[in-house]
Design a protein around this nucleic acid. Structure first.
Lengths: 248, 248
DNA sequence: CTTGACCCTCACGCTACGTCAGGCTGTACG
DNA sequence: CGTACAGCCTGACGTAGCGTGAGGGTCAAG
């Protein structure tokens, strides 16, 4: 018959009853959250009833999302720390939820754009993702929805064909520019017609979308680099278009 | 004039342009997320244009909340990892938001109960918090709201008086029980009347609340211990009540 | 006296870097 | 040519909340 067994619990026992691990209790001890009142002669932790009560309160606070130092402060001086800690936790949670909410909407919108054909058409998924993120920056929800709808109505293979045509078209224009061809030269007319057609097909004739895309090209060197559209070509095309219009 | 400067960036430069720290870039290098193609003779990291492009993609993925190993997997093999990673991240976010949402409602409801007088009345804020959490478990929102409303209508000092009276009442009953007084004895009648009155005052006469509280006392030893109401007393009171009713 | 279950105290591992420490490198200035 | 200073390198420890051993006592039962 041991003399000190009566109503004291050893760590394993307490762990089982609270669903914690022995290690966690050790940790709480180290942090001063719950240091058992007594130790056995051999150094075993012996938890009394008040220790158990304190632990239950600690678990309650932890379930509310407080950090262990906060839990400790609340246990040691509830009147001073508890209300502040709860308020702080509430505002933290509100901010984090708001942030994660925004993230989630982004993810969902990206995922749906991804599945709606535009993603499947492009070879490099990451480039597609980058483009989608750019679109998020320069176009609003409605405009992106319109783009997605047009993409779906055109069909995946049509999009693939257009995406394959762009580099050839750009290369042809670049070649003309580098050969010193006058932007107003008649040989550029069919190229510019096709160019305008592709742009109209992409934007659906929406001037807001067209302007957003132009701003994107103006502000994002990465996009220009990826498509091979540098400022020289942009200006050359602009002049050729103007010439075509004024003579057309 | 150094020969290798042209379009390669050193870490500090790249850090400035991306808003990252040098340490972060070192870290990405160590994790294989971005190891610069080249090193200078002295071992300096030299980042080329494709390195920069990869870094931008990595930052995009990280802003979406992916872990660095996930980012690496997506960069290394987008077709296989990217869709899965995005889906996983979306579900993770959804779960976490749901969890935090629940936590926040709990915190808010606790805070409001706290301010509505019941908290200010009790000395030990943590015990109050524990009781409130218990109530969450055994009473629904509506019932707790009813409790809070009654608390407000009664006023803080009335509540304080009642909370001071309970231990005395319990002590008196316990004393009678320990003296072996018959539960049906007339000396218990005024005690039981007062007991019933306090209970009615607390529950507002709502039988659902009364039953919830009874279940709480039945299932939560911690609550019984705190109030000094063990099962013996509960049964003694029940019998005294029954005797009082049948003879009254 | 041994076995097995329990306990003890280090101490390293995890995320995504921050923050030194100690030591080269590159360049500008005197 | 020496030196000062900015910039780079590679470790290595710290963060929150424990998990997961390692190595070694303790206790009741056989």
């Amino acid at each position: 018959m041991t003399r000190e067994a009566t109503n004291h619990l050893r760590v394993g026992e307490l762990a089982k009853r609270t669903g914690l691990t022995v290690r966690a209790l050790h940790h709480y001890d180290a942090l001063g959250i719950l240091s058992p009142r007594r130790r056995s002669a051999a150094g075993y932790r012996l938890y009394g009833e008040d220790d158990v009560a304190r632990l239950l309160q600690a678990l309650l606070l932890r379930r509310l999302g407080l950090s262990l130092p906060e839990v400790r402060a609340c246990l040691d001086d509830p009147r001073r720390s508890l209300p502040a800690a709860l308020r702080a936790q509430a505002t933290r949670l509100r901010q984090q939820i708001a942030h994660e909410q925004r993230l989630l909407t982004r993810l969902d919108s990206l995922a749906s754009s991804f599945e709606n054909g535009r993603g499947a058409a492009t070879d490099d998924l990451l480039q597609t993702l980058e483009m989608l993120t750019m679109f998020e920056k320069y176009l609003d929800d409605e405009q992106r929805a319109a783009l997605a709808a047009r993409g779906e109505s055109l069909g995946a293979e049509h999009i693939a064909a257009v995406e394959a045509e762009w580099p050839r078209l750009i290369a042809a224009v670049r070649s003309a520019m580098e050969r010193g061809v006058d932007p107003a030269a008649p040989e550029l007319v069919p190229l510019m017609q096709r160019w305008g057609e592709l742009v109209r097909q992409f934007t659906g004739g929406d001037p807001a979308i067209a302007s957003g895309v132009r701003r994107m090209y103006a502000n994002e060197p990465a996009v220009r680099q990826r498509t091979g559209l540098d400022e020289g070509i942009m200006e050359y095309v602009a002049r050729a278009m103007a010439a075509g219009k004024s003579t057309g």
